[in-house]
Design a protein around this nucleic acid. Structure first.
Lengths: 139, 139
DNA sequence: TATTGTTATACTCTATAACTATA
DNA sequence: TATAGTTATAGAGTATAACAATA
């Protein structure tokens, strides 16, 4: 029997392990979770100022500097001057970054989908997806 | 509409954020996720050799040394000689560790349960719990 | 020769605080 | 005086490799 009180405990145990497995998978192809998220944001919304990224991801300005440094060293992103404010910098994804992002998303999402498909039926996955949608509300 | 193919993607977005929130909560009461897990294992299964811990948690021997160092500095765990093998050490939880573990589990599980209760009905939480049970199979 | 754990070294992800350049 | 970003510093969590003690 399952009671609602046991959910938090299971939640922690299961997802901590799953996310770690995905993260290992991602590192294997050269892009960590944090870097993938940032690259994806740049891919979808174009060149963005660092302070906007910090606010949107809930990270400190320093963490963004660090993340962008890493992506820049890898050649996946680049900083450009912001023409409207000489203090600010726009971070943009490069062609190499777009290619890598494509590869990383394919690899890790396929891995996750396979892991889920191994453990859940199609109906259960649909149910999970709808629960996730409800969990995703920021509150 | 929700298709099984979208599940992996949502899974990542939702749980990454949730686990980070829980981890922040846990740091606030002085025990990180990794330390809590280790302390809990020591509480439940008694003094354990470091190589066993490394194997069970899927960590390198060094990571265990590091984690135990941290818990020892906090007075939450201690190393004892293994009477059967002078190379080995048994890691044991202390009284202070047991008290802290109790507090940490209460704080972070209550936080998680509240987060879930804010977003899901009781029936949905029961459904989630049963999905988590299926996801928890190691494969 | 193999195993147990530590030390040395390093990388990622996160933080706060002090600082520089610009607004 | 306030904002954008970097540098300095720090701590957790992870890794590999080299090493000492012991088996």
């Amino acid at each position: 029997m399952v009671t609602p009180e046991q959910v938090g405990e299971r939640y922690l145990a299961v997802h901590h392990r799953m996310l770690r497995a995905v993260n290992d998978e991602m590192l294997g192809c050269g892009l960590s979770m944090a870097r993938t998220k940032l690259l994806r944001r740049l891919h979808e919304q174009g060149p963005t100022r660092q302070n906007v990224l910090a606010a949107d991801f809930g990270l400190s300005p320093h963490s963004i500097t660090d993340l962008v440094d890493g992506l820049e060293r890898m050649g996946m992103a680049e900083r450009r001057p912001d023409p409207t404010d000489r203090r600010a910098k726009l971070v943009a994804i490069t062609d190499a970054g777009n290619a890598k992002l494509d590869e990383a998303l394919t690899v890790h999402l396929e891995y996750l989908d396979e892991s889920l498909a191994k453990r859940l039926t199609e109906n259960e996955r649909v149910t999970l997806a709808s629960l996730l949608t409800k969990l995703n509300v920021a509150r």
